[in-house]
C-alpha cells in the first residue's frame, strides 16, 4: 500500500474536486432520479396533490385553505401569513406557527378568545370546543381538523345550507381518516375534501 501524500494545497484541491463530483451525483442525479420515479408512479403527489373542481384547480389536498362563513367547515387557526393559510412563495408569507410558550399570557388570551368565538358561531357550550379549534397548527397549513371539531360545526353548516344535519354528518364520517395502520397519529377530517362534498349537497 502506498501512503497518501499530503500537501496543503493538493489536499484542498482534491477536496474541491471530490466535492464537485459528489455534487453532480448527489445534488443533481439523485433528485432527478427521484423526480423521474415520482412522475411515473405518483404524478399527482409529486406535483403537490392538486384538487380540481369543475375543471379548476381549487387547492391542494394536503394544504389547508381558509374558509369563512356559516355554510362551510372552518379550519384551524393559521399563522402562515397575515391572513393565514399563505402557503409560501416570495414575499413575507410562508409556513409556520406562533412559537408562543406555554405560560405566555398572550397565548392564553388568544386561546380564550378563540374558544368564545368558536362556541358562539356554532351555538355550543365553550366546554365542547376541542383543543385543535383553539390552537394554531405548526405549519399554519394544517389541512385537517379533529372529528370533534367537525362534529360541533355540523348543525351550523346544515342550517346555512338548508339540508338535513344527518346528510352533513354522513359526509364528515366519509372524510374522516382514522389512524394509519390502526395506531399512528390521530383521527382527522380533511377540510377541503369535506367542504367540496358539502357544496354538492346544496
Amino acid at each position: 500500500m502506498t501512503i497518501v501524500r499530503t500537501g496543503w494545497i493538493r489536499q484542498h484541491v482534491a477536496a474541491l474536486r471530490i466535492l464537485v463530483v459528489l455534487t453532480v451525483i448527489l445534488g443533481l442525479g439523485y433528485p432527478v432520479a427521484t423526480w423521474a420515479v415520482g412522475q411515473v408512479l405518483f404524478r399527482n403527489h409529486a406535483q403537490g396533490s392538486p384538487v380540481e373542481s369543475d375543471g379548476r384547480v381549487v387547492g391542494s389536498r394536503l394544504i389547508g385553505q381558509n374558509f369563512t362563513g356559516a355554510a362551510w367547515f372552518h379550519p384551524r387557526a393559521s399563522l402562515a401569513g397575515a391572513k393565514g393559510y399563505a402557503a409560501g412563495g416570495d414575499g413575507a408569507d410562508g409556513s409556520g406557527g406562533s412559537n408562543l410558550g406555554p405560560s405566555n399570557p398572550e397565548l392564553v388570551k388568544a386561546i380564550r378568545a378563540r374558544r368564545a368565538a368558536v362556541a358562539r358561531e356554532n351555538g355550543v357550550a365553550p366546554t365542547q370546543v376541542p383543543p385543535d379549534a383553539v390552537t394554531a397548527s405548526a405549519s399554519g397549513l394544517d389541512p385537517d381538523i379533529s372529528p370533534e371539531y367537525a362534529a360541533i360545526q355540523v348543525n351550523r353548516v346544515a342550517k346555512a345550507r338548508n339540508v338535513p344535519a344527518a346528510d352533513v354528518r354522513r359526509l364528515v364520517e366519509r372524510y374522516t381518516y382514522g389512524r394509519q395502520l390502526g395506531v399512528l397519529g390521530d383521527p382527522h377530517v380533511n377540510v377541503l375534501e369535506l367542504n367540496l362534498a358539502v357544496a354538492k349537497l346544496g
Binding site: 415520482g38 405518483f42 403527489h45 392538486p50 373542481s53 409560501g88 367542504n195
Partner: peptide, 28 residues
C-alpha cells in the same frame, strides 16, 4: 415519501383558485 404525498418537482409550484375565490400559491 412521494408515494404518501411529498412533493418532488422543479417548478415554482402552482396557483390555486380557492373554493371561496382567493388565490393560494402552492409551492413546488
Amino acid at each position: 415519501l412521494v408515494g404518501f404525498g411529498a412533493v418532488q418537482n422543479f417548478t415554482h409550484g402552482f396557483d390555486a383558485h380557492t373554493v371561496q375565490g382567493a388565490t393560494q400559491h402552492i409551492p413546488g
